[in-house]
């Protein structure tokens, strides 16, 4: 009997390392226009550079980028860091956060399926949501799904608010206390994200209590 060859097989033959998938769900609604979006864009490049400088993380961490401004768009599907190119962000429209969260969960689910069918090990996927407003769509269903997945340790969900973000909504989405970015400290935030992903991809530790606390007095966020 001849078996089928899944298309992704080459990708995982060339690089069989366990994967550490991370979805960046980024708010690109109209209110993000200006310095916020510029800082965010610069932060994406910084994230890539810092991860790529780590020989193990560059083979293990996979990034996907979703934007939600007006509509939800998949800007970059999961790509290992060495091939990741930060997509160009454009600010426009309202804040369909519920749709974005649902899309992020679907994305993670599909990716895990690909890992499994190719027999590749993976670490607990991360979803990193960044918003400066409040959802203008149905989000309660997505919130429920996130809390479910997190409770079953299928997912680590991080929510970060910027400026006037509605933290009450984020609190209902995320089991983990949502964080409020101090000012425009995107640089520090992405530094934290890259070093957290590095330590996860190095050791397989999934217990985020061992991550550096971003809400420490000199950190980039407050609770």
């Amino acid at each position: 009997m001849t078996s089928q060859i899944p298309f992704a097989a080459v990708e995982f033959a060339a690089n069989p390392e366990p994967r550490c998938p991370c979805v960046l769900a980024l708010d690109t609604s109209a209110s993000m226009a200006g310095p916020r979006l510029q800082e965010l864009q610069a932060g994406l490049s910084q994230l890539k550079d810092e991860l790529a400088a780590d020989p193990l993380a560059r083979k293990r961490v996979e990034l996907a980028v979703l934007s939600f401004g007006g509509s939800v768009r998949l800007l970059t599907d999961f790509t290992t860091v060495d091939a990741f190119e930060p997509p160009l962000l454009r600010a426009d429209g309202l804040t369909p956060m519920g749709g974005a969260i649902a899309a992020a969960l679907d994305l993670v689910k599909a990716r895990k399926q690909i890992y499994r069918s190719n027999g590749v090990a993976y670490y607990r996927p991360w979803v990193f949501l960044l918003t400066d407003g409040e959802p203008n769509d149905q989000w309660q269903g997505s919130a429920h799904a996130v809390r479910d997945a997190e409770q079953n340790r299928q997912l680590a969900f991080f929510a970060v608010g910027i400026g006037d973000a509605n933290l009450d909504v984020l609190r209902q989405v995320s089991l983990r206390a949502p964080l409020l970015l101090k000012g425009l400290r995107f640089r520090e935030m992405f530094q934290w994200l890259s070093s957290s992903l590095k330590s996860v991809s190095h050791s397989g530790l999934t217990d985020e209590t061992r991550l550096e606390n971003p809400a420490a007095p000199d950190g980039w966020a407050k609770v």
Binding site: P18, K112, G119, V120, A121, R124, G204
Partner: peptide
């Protein structure tokens, strides 16, 4: 690798 949970 290839286990059901994905984790090693």
């Amino acid at each position: 690798s290839g286990g059901a949970s994905g984790e090693l």
